[in-house]
Design a protein around this nucleic acid. Structure first.
Length: 784
DNA sequence: CAGTAG
DNA sequence: AGGCCTTACTG
DNA sequence: GCCT
């Protein structure tokens, strides 16, 4: 088998020594990795993917857009055949041991697919039938067009090289496999080493060296003149087909643009019941609120869903109610509401949650009435003239690309050869799936023009306080959008619904809510908070109290933070939470940048007295240049590549004690398992000493091994959304990014659950290296 | 393991 | 319909 | 709640 080449091995060793401590494990060769992995519990690894076909289907979704791998196997069609578990006796029935799934095979598949190969599961491989396929390709052309199929037996132990017949026996859907004669001239059997060397050389290498002996292509008859002609005709046919498809697509796009949504929908749905005249029937009004916004078992106040005073009674006949009960339709005016939720038609007075009051918001009535009468689309069209909306989401054209950033090498759907008449905003939104790829320069500012909208959205996010998973993601979604809104240009009152929807991440519902907030300054939902909601919201502001504990405490009778303070033990709060409670008032406050600087510098002073060579950095929003921070993150490390190789081990313990002595550290909320570990992490409270009015602040101090600095810098700089985004991108490309480093060759099960750690990507020295590896355009911390 | 936090 | 970031500490 |  392909042992790692001596050259590579020495390179790895060199890299390790340069790092000084040899702490970074030398990268295992593929085979070593396979061996290691095989020792893991087999069932866990192989159960999820009993067949190769299933694994291939799974892998494809993770590799649809390999960032910067040289796609050296692009166009190759590869059939992996697992012969590893065959018994040495050739008489063994292939049926029992056809292509068993195992982790080694999984790795091989992953490598191939990540480099652009198209994998064909053995059982789906169909041998070209010479008798019915006269339009076989000319071998040279086939090579150029990537029509060759490579059959790669996956064999770890080279002693048992399979025979051709064994390989062929487990190809194809039938028990009998396929015969040599069935193989056309475009099928080659090569050793895995060919794949490996393509990957290593980052280019497609000739197969000659790696062909398994007795290349059976010799069995295939040469192409006749007739066949060659057929090949040409086939190519022409395909060209024509492609052109026709393109024309059809263009025509459809134009149709969509001209006739609008209605025409298209009618076309798509085929038989449309009742083509009732004008297009306004199909206009959908999206409810700006949903019943999901209400806690389980409680009902909104009367007039919440349906604004009573705004009811345009008799605006239109209820023609839809019979055909589509419960659907939210514009122009219907049923119940006179914005959009009446199914099952919530008649919010009754006595069902209203205690304490909830619906207050009328100035301007809302008019909005609702307009919306009700004309529908969202018409409203948008009316607003189209407004010049301010056009320039709103103009985020294009300010890309700061890295020099080496070679753009999306995605599946090719990103090619902009077609200019449809869609909204430019839509196109833009489609292109960047990962928020971390958006190098927009605008920084989130708490004094920005959209701060109010963002705050209202965040408050609505907090309302999704239920502990169910669904609610958690709703909450995250709201929060995400709040962050995006904060970064956007000013959202005018005249903003169009579809412009908001065009932003990746904002959907119909939130768009409607944003509009309501933009136009009225607030949202109905917040005008009628439930008592429990108000309490839960207040309680979860305490450090250590989340929604679960807040709800529990509320049930136990707590009405306010003050109640908790009075008798903390009654509610079974943890020690850290009690400390957080003591300083609740202070911890609510944001920390001005100047104070962060002051604290940071005094702590740095203490640190320097202990070991001046230990570096200590202030991370989090401070590093992003924020004018105020919620807490203070300090990162401690020491360059181990210096001559002594001394680390910062134990430094944090000494520093924290010094801070306590100096009166800076007030309290410890959680402490590391190993104070002397390199990755020690303290969670505590601090304040400026000798200052009567100094407020108590949250502080985290954490140690980072020198070689983990690049990843740690990214992680602790954030922000949250950026981190999630870049990690998600890493994961989808087969990497794994955490605060310790960037790992490659991670294998996951079909749920995306990590099965193996993967291996640390070598040669990463800076943040930029990680960005580059993941093809994320570089952004300075202040722009993240 | 759930809950909380980063 | 299923995914949505990853790790660490606490009780 | 949004996206694929």
């Amino acid at each position: 088998s392909a042992r790692s080449s001596p050259a590579r091995a020495s390179k790895v060793a060199a890299a390790a020594t340069v790092k000084g401590k040899g702490r970074a494990k030398a990268r295992l060769s593929l085979e070593q990795e396979v061996d290691r992995v095989l020792k893991l519990r087999k069932t866990k690894l192989t159960d999820p993917f009993p067949t190769v076909a299933e694994l291939v289907a799974h892998l494809v979704q993770f590799t649809s857009a390999q960032p910067n791998a040289k796609r050296c196997l692009e166009g190759c069609r590869i059939v992996f055949v697992n012969t590893e578990h065959w018994s040495s006796a050739p008489s063994t029935s292939a049926k029992l041991t056809r292509n068993p799934m195992d982790e080694g095979l999984r790795l091989c598949l992953t490598v191939a697919i990540r480099h652009g190969a198209t994998l064909i599961p053995p059982e789906e491989f169909v041998a070209p039938d010479p008798s019915v396929s006269p339009d076989q390709l000319d071998p040279d052309q086939a090579e150029a067009e990537g029509w060759t199929t490579h059959i790669v037996p996956y064999v770890l132990s080279q002693q048992r090289l399979p025979t051709y017949d064994q390989i062929l026996a487990c190809l194809g859907p039938d028990e009998g496999g396929i015969s040599r004669e069935q193989l056309g001239p475009f099928v080659k059997v090569v050793k895995y080493k060919w794949v490996a060397s393509c990957v290593e050389k980052r280019a497609k290498v000739p197969e000659t060296m790696y062909l398994l002996g007795g290349d059976f292509r010799q069995h295939a008859p040469p192409l006749t003149e007739q066949q060659k002609r057929a090949v040409k005709e086939r190519a022409q046919r395909m060209e024509v087909q492609a052109k026709q498809a393109e024309q059809a697509r263009v025509a459809k796009t134009k149709l969509r643009a001209r006739a609008g949504k209605d025409a298209l929908e009618a076309e798509d749905s085929g038989s449309d019941h009742g083509s009732n005249g004008g297009g306004e029937d199909e206009v959908e009004v999206v409810s700006p609120l949903g019943s999901q916004d209400w806690p389980e078992g409680e009902k909104p106040p009367a007039g919440y869903f349906a604004h009573q005073t705004a009811s345009p009674l008799g605006a239109a006949p209820d023609k839809h109610d019979t055909t589509r009960p419960g659907e939210q339709v514009g122009g219907g005016g049923s119940g006179g509401g914005v959009a009446v939720e199914a099952g919530e038609d008649e919010p009754e007075g006595q069902a209203v949650a205690a304490g909830a009051r619906f207050k009328s918001i100035p301007g809302l009535e008019q909005e609702v009435q307009f919306l009700n009468t004309y529908g969202q689309e018409v409203m948008d069209d009316v607003l189209e003239e407004t010049p301010r909306t056009a320039a709103l989401f103009e985020l294009d054209g300010m890309c700061i690309l890295d020099d080496d950033y070679d753009g999306d090498r995605d599946t090719g759907e990103g090619t902009d050869e077609s200019f449809d008449d869609e909204e430019p905003a839509k196109k833009k939104a489609k292109r960047s799936v990962w928020a971390c790829d958006d190098p927009e320069g605008s920084v989130a500012s708490r004094n920005g023009p959209n701060e109010n909208i963002a705050m209202v959205l965040e408050m609505m996010a907090d309302l999704a306080s239920s502990t169910t998973e669904k609610q958690q993601f709703r909450q995250r979604s709201y929060k995400k959008i709040a962050g995006m809104v904060r970064k956007m240009r000013e959202i005018p009152k005249e903003v169009r619904h579809k412009d908001l929807c065009a932003v990746h991440g904002i959907g119909k519902k939130t768009a409607s809510k944003i509009i309501e907030i933009a136009r009225t300054g607030t949202h109905r939902r917040l005008q009628c908070l439930t008592e429990t909601e108000r309490i839960a919201r207040e309680l979860s502001g305490v450090y250590g109290i989340g929604k679960a504990i807040a709800e529990k405490a509320a049930k136990a009778g707590a009405k306010s933070v003050a109640d908790l303070k009075r008798d903390p033990h009654k509610y079974g709060l943890s020690a850290a939470t009690i400390k957080g409670l003591e300083h609740y008032d202070d911890l609510c406050e944001r920390i001005p940048r100047a104070e962060v600087t002051e604290l940071y510098e005094s702590i740095k002073g203490l640190s320097d007295k202990i070991d001046p060579k230990v570096q200590i950095e202030c991370m989090g929003s401070y590093r992003r240049g924020a004018k105020s921070s919620g807490d203070i993150d300090l990162l401690v490390t020491r360059d181990t590549t210096s001559s002594t190789g001394k680390t910062h081990a134990g430094h944090i313990a000494k520093l924290w004690r010094a801070m306590e002595r100096a009166g800076i550290a007030v309290s410890t909320l959680s402490e590391p398992d190993q104070w002397h570990g390199l990755a020690a992490k303290v969670n505590g409270l601090c304040r400026l000493p000798d200052r009567a009015d100094a407020k108590v602040r949250r502080i985290d101090i954490l140690g980072v091994p020198w070689e983990e600095m690049p990843a740690a810098l990214i992680y602790f700089t954030g922000d949250d959304h950026f981190n999630r985004s870049i990690r998600l991108k890493a994961r989808k490309h087969g990497y794994r990014l955490n605060q310790r480093g960037l790992y490659e060759n991670v294998s996951r099960d079909r749920k995306g659950e990590k099965l193996t750690e993967g291996t640390l990507v070598l040669g990463i020295r800076t943040e930029r290296d990680i960005f580059k590896k993941l093809c994320v355009p570089w952004r300075e911390p202040t722009l993240r």
